[in-house]
C-alpha cells in the first residue's frame, strides 16, 4: 500500500542540537565544544573519536546548529562520502566560521585528501577558524601518511566519545518523540528500545519511520501498529 505523503503536516523534524544531546557518559563534550565555538581554544581544533553510533555526528551537527544560531556560517562535511566528493570541496573554507569534518579518518592514506586537509588546517589555523573533527580512532591509529598532518591533528583537543548507556535510551526516546509531537506508551518505548539492540541510531530511525507512518495512516502509535509498521521496513 502506498503511503500518502504527509510532509506538510509534520512538525519540523528536530535537527541535531545541543538541546537534544544526551550528555551522559560524555559530560565534557558540551563544554569543550562551547569553548571551541567561542574561540576560547588555541589551537582552535577538537578531535572527537569513538565507535560508530556513539553520537559524534550529532555533536558535529549540533555545533553547526549552534554556530548558525549565533548568526555565523558553518559547514559540515561527511568524509565517509569522500568518493562522491573531491578534495576541492575543502577549498576556501577558511571564509566560514566553523568547519566540521565527520569521519575524517576515512580519507587517511589518500594523498590528495591528506594534502587538501593539510592546506585547510593551515588556513584555518592562520585565521583561527574552529575545526571540529570526528573519527573512529585516535589520530595515531589511523593510517595517516603525512606526519605533518597527524601531528597537527594531535595539537588540539582530543575527546573520546563513549556510547550512551542503554538506561538512558528511554529519556532520549521521550525527548525526540515529544519534539515530534508523539506520545509513546511505556510498552511501546520498551519494545522500541529492545528492538534497537543498543544502537541509538536505529532507535531514532525507527521513531522517524513511525512518525511518518502514523501521519500517513492517521493512526496512534499502538504497540500493534508499531510492530506491524516496523516489520514492513
Amino acid at each position: 500500500m502506498a503511503f500518502q505523503l504527509p510532509l506538510q503536516l509534520r512538525l519540523p523534524k528536530p535537527g541535531a542540537s545541543f538541546d537534544n544531546y544526551c550528555c551522559q557518559n560524555n559530560p565534557l563534550a558540551y563544554p569543550l565544544l562551547q569553548q571551541l565555538l567561542k574561540a576560547e581554544l588555541s589551537p582552535a581544533c577538537a578531535y572527537l573519536w569513538g565507535e560508530h553510533g556513539v553520537g559524534k555526528t550529532h555533536l558535529l551537527q549540533a555545533a553547526c546548529d549552534s554556530c548558525s544560531r549565533m548568526g555565523q556560517t558553518p559547514v559540515y562535511l561527511p568524509l565517509e562520502q569522500a568518493d562522491m566528493l573531491s578534495p576541492d570541496v575543502l577549498d576556501e573554507l577558511d571564509q566560514l566560521d566553523l568547519v566540521c569534518l565527520d569521519n575524517v579518518d576515512q580519507v587517511a592514506g589518500d594523498s590528495d585528501w591528506e594534502f587538501a586537509l593539510f592546506k585547510l588546517f593551515n588556513q584555518l589555523h592562520d585565521q583561527a577558524v574552529p575545526l571540529l573533527l570526528s573519527a573512529s580512532k585516535p589520530v595515531h591509529q589511523a593510517a595517516w601518511q603525512a606526519a605533518d598532518l597527524s601531528s597537527r591533528f594531535n595539537s588540539g583537543q582530543h575527546l573520546a566519545i563513549k556510547a550512551l548507556p542503554s538506561e538512558a535510551f528511554a529519556s532520549v526516546l521521550e525527548k525526540h518523540a515529544t519534539a515530534k509531537g508523539l506520545q509513546l506508551k511505556d510498552k511501546v518505548s520498551q519494545f522500541l528500545i529492545q528492538r534497537s539492540q543498543g544502537q541509538l541510531e536505529q532507535l531514532l530511525q525507527d521513531l522517524e519511520t513511525l512518525d511518518y507512518a502514523a501521519l500517513a495512516d492517521k493512526r496512534r502509535l499502538s504497540l500493534n501498529f508499531v510492530k506491524k509498521t516496523l516489520e514492513q521496513t
Binding site: L7, G15, A16, Q61, C64, S68, T73, P74, V75, Y76, L77, P78, L93, L96, C100
Partner: peptide, 13 residues
Amino acid sequence: DLSAQEFNTWIRP
C-alpha cells in the same frame, strides 16, 4: 525538506 546531512553540508555554508 532536506536531510540533516544535506542541509548541514550544502545549505548552511
